[in-house]
Structures are given as C-alpha cells and as structure tokens.
Nucleic acid binder design. Structure first.
Lengths: 250, 250
DNA sequence: AGCCGATCTGAGCGGAACTTGAGGATCACG
DNA sequence: CGTGATCCTCAAGTTCCGCTCAGATCGGCT
C-alpha cells in the first residue's frame, strides 16, 4: 500500500518511514508541498492510498498544499501537526482533510487512523493534479491582485498603500485569502473567525464583509455566493476557470 | 442530510439535535444500541449519511454496536466518548469507526469532522454487503464529457467555459454527478437538495432540471426516468464503458 | 468612570432565486 | 390510435437573502 509522507524534518521523516515500512506501507517521502503535488500527478504507478501531511514550518503552507491536493485528487489526507488550536483543526478539516492529528501522537493511534481513512479511501479519479504553473505558489505574505497580506504583522496593503483593518476584518480577509476561489460557508466562517459553535444572529457577517469591501476598495474581490457564503476572487475575471491545457486521458 | 445519533443521555441528545438541525442535518435519535441497529435497517428511506455513536450505552457495549453496524452497513461512524485512553481509541478505529472524538469536544470541530466523514461517505445503496468498490463514488473534481464540477469552489465548467449556476442547480447537479448513471428518485433528491421530508408540490424540480439543462447546453446529459426520477448520463450513449450495475426500479 | 473605536442588532430595500400554475408536448399502455 | 399520466416550458407571483444604514452595546484604554 503506497503512502505519501509530506514532512520537512528529516529526522522525523526517517523515523516515520521506518515504522510505516515495518507496517507494510511503501512510503514516498516528499520534503515540500511542491514535491508532494508533483508526486501526486498520475504517472502510471499505483495511486497513493493516503497522504500524511505535516503542516510544517512555512506558516500556512500546509493548508494551501491540502487545498491544492484536494482540488486535483480525492486521495485521503491526514494532517499531522503541532498546531492544536481549534481554529487550525476546523480549518484543516474544512479544507478537505480527512483527519487531523496533533503532535505528540501515539504511533498506534496514527496507524489506526491511517487504516481508517485508507479503508474509506477514494477510488483514484482520472482528474490530474493541478498543473504546477497555472497556479502560482503563494507562500509567506499572500500577494494577489495587488493585495498583500502580512499575517504576522496583521497588515494589509493594496497597491502599496496601507489599509488599516480591524480584528474581525483582518481575520475574515485572512481566512478567505487562505484559499482564493474556495467558497467558505457561513458556518465555517463563524466557527473560524468567531468563537466556534456560535451562530450569527443578526447581520453581523454582512456588516463586516461590507466594511471590508469598502476599505479595500477592490470591487468584486469579495464575492457573495448566495445561500452559501463568500469567496475571494483570485484572478481577474477574464478566465475564471483554469484552462485545461494538456489533459491526460486515462 | 440524514444523521443517526446514538446517545442515551436525553439532555446531551437534545442539545445535539438542536445544533445539528440548525446546521442542516435531519437527525434521528436512537437511545440504545438496539434502537440504532433497528434504525439502520434499510426501509426505503434515504440511508443515513453518518452515525454519531456514543460509547457507554446502557444495553450494550458501544464497541459491539459499532462492530454490528459495520457488519451490516458501510455507513460512516464517528465514536464520541469520554474514554480517552489510547487502547480504546485504537480499538474503536480498528473496529471500523471512521473517527474517534473524546469528550469534551468542541462543537465546531465535531461539525467539521462530521462533514469530513460524510464527504467521504458510504455507498448510497441500501445493500447490506459493504462493497466499497462496486459503486464508484466520484471524488475530487468530477470530469466527464467535458463537464467539470468543482465542489469546493462551486464552479462548473463545460469545455472550459465557466457556467454560473444557482444554489439549487449546483446542488442538484452535484448530487446527480455523485454517481453518474444511477437513478435518483424524486423523494431522494428533495431530501438531499432541499431540507427535511418536503414533498415538492409544484413543478419545482422540473423547473430546476430545465434551467440546468439550458445552462449546461449538453443535450441528453440529464435524463428523466419516467415515474422515478433523474440521472446523469456518464459517457456518450454509444459505448457503455461499464454497464450501470445498480438499477433502482421501484 | 468616561471615552472611543469595534462589534452587534434590527429594519428596510432591492434583486436574485425559488415556487407555482397553466398549457402544450411526450410517453406508456391498452 | 386514443387516453391518461408524466414531463417540459413559459410567465407570472412570492419568498429569501444579502446589502446598507443607523443606533445600541461591548470592551479596552487612560
């Protein structure tokens, strides 16, 4: 059974490869998100039955990798990370991860969870992984359409000029910007930006979205998806869907 | 989306039913393992999409209930329990549970995990034998006949052209596309795309099907099955790569 | 305490989405 | 070939939902 391990720490990876190998897994080790996405492109080998994804050092990189994986493949993903906070858990699961395991974990439990998701695993789809060059890799401060988001400093600038945002506005924007194009449902937004489990009573969300739009002054950036939620428009509205260049028929 | 809650504490159950209901689940509450197993017997209703199983039931051991459920059905099971020890976790997962959540849990995380396992869900057939690969459930972006459905972005494109769809239209298409070729009965469609057991009085469904056909401009894609419901034609009608196995005649 | 910005709530508006009904087309079946 | 049931389309009516504004409440700071 093939398994893809995404982990940048060599020592951790080596240990996992050893243990997993002893339990009958054929492990491919990817050291970066880019390498992982490459590895997932169908190449005639058996498809991977499960992906172990470490949300490693580059801050949000792991979430983006998960989103990209999910956009192109149905392979089960288990996030493994030291980040135990609820926000991260919920966000990871909402991005399409099948499980979320925090360090330190028990090896036996991890194995059991791997088997659980593999057992449920998807039939390999014919869909190719996203072409690496159509979607530019966004790491560190997100930059797209002239908008720059510095998560550490909590600063946002549009075309160079600084835009002061309040907490909620920033959290909201930061959430949506983690996966431009992906629709975030209202409940998801509430459980990640507000205290989880809280139901927005009034028009709270709309008001914050409104002021966010006003301050950013980028019409069409934040798009409402009626009855569902909101999303960020990543590219200019020219070609929204990525053109399928050379699609490998299976 | 139907959900089976197995919980003997009335107060806990009531709270969960309320929250889950508000999040779009149609919850059936079973107070014992026996009742749960009864509820899971196929009865013509839509199958449950996920089971929330509280260990520590009065009449039976929760593990045994899980094992029996798994013996008769492929429905995803989430164990919810106060027993946090590693042994129990591993045991539960190895018995076929899809996830194992310990109390106290965060409501937002539980919801995210419910969605995660439901997303990965079981075969929609009511057949007792859980054969995961007999019914090909499409994951990731569905691509067939030039039509591409991106669930998390809620985008549909036909031959590269982006086709804007409304909520109902998209949900309808996404549902039918889950298993191309399989006939979805009207009641089934209503309970999945709409809320609760609502018997569409007027010509609602036909209208939405109509606009879906118009927008997609793929004649013959959505096929009406007289007196039963609708289905998607997977491949061009000439050479059927695979004969549709499960035919739902009444 | 008092101030001030941030957040929340409620009402009203406008438009998109959904529903309904009627009439025509099509199909299954005798 | 006739007939009833089912489905499709069109054009209303109606509901729902997101947007905005204005005021109330919350919460941090001095």
């Amino acid at each position: 059974m093939r398994l893809l391990l995404v982990e940048d720490d060599e020592r951790v990876a080596a240990a996992l490869v050893a243990v997993l190998g002893r339990h009958g897994f054929q492990v491919r080790h990817a050291r970066s998100g880019h390498e992982a996405l490459d590895a997932l492109v169908p190449d005639g080998h058996d498809p991977y039955r499960v992906v172990l994804l470490d949300l490693g050092l580059p801050d949000r990189d792991g979430f983006e990798v998960c989103s990209r994986i999910r956009a192109g493949s149905g392979v089960p993903v288990i996030m493994v990370t030291a980040r135990a906070d609820i926000r991260s858990r919920i966000h990871g699961l909402n991005l399409g991860a099948d499980d979320y395991v925090t360090k330190p974990y028990d090896m036996g439990e991890l194995l059991a969870r791997i088997h659980a998701v593999a057992r449920r695993g998807a039939a390999p789809t014919a869909a190719a992984a996203p072409a690496p060059d159509t979607v530019p890799q966004q790491r560190g401060p997100l930059e797209s359409r002239g908008i720059r988001i510095d998560r550490e400093r909590r600063r946002v600038s549009v075309d160079g000029r600084d835009v002061p945002l309040t907490r909620k506005e920033f959290d909201l924007l930061a959430l949506l910007a983690q996966s431009p194009g992906v629709v975030y449902r209202r409940e998801q937004i509430f459980s990640e930006v507000w205290r989880s489990g809280w139901e927005g009573n009034g028009r709270t969300l709309e008001v914050h979205i409104g002021s966010l739009r006003t301050k950013l002054a980028l019409p069409g950036l934040v798009e409402a998806v009626r009855g569902v939620g909101y999303r960020l428009i990543a590219e200019s509205p020219a070609s929204a869907g990525q053109p399928p260049p050379a699609r490998a028929e299976r």
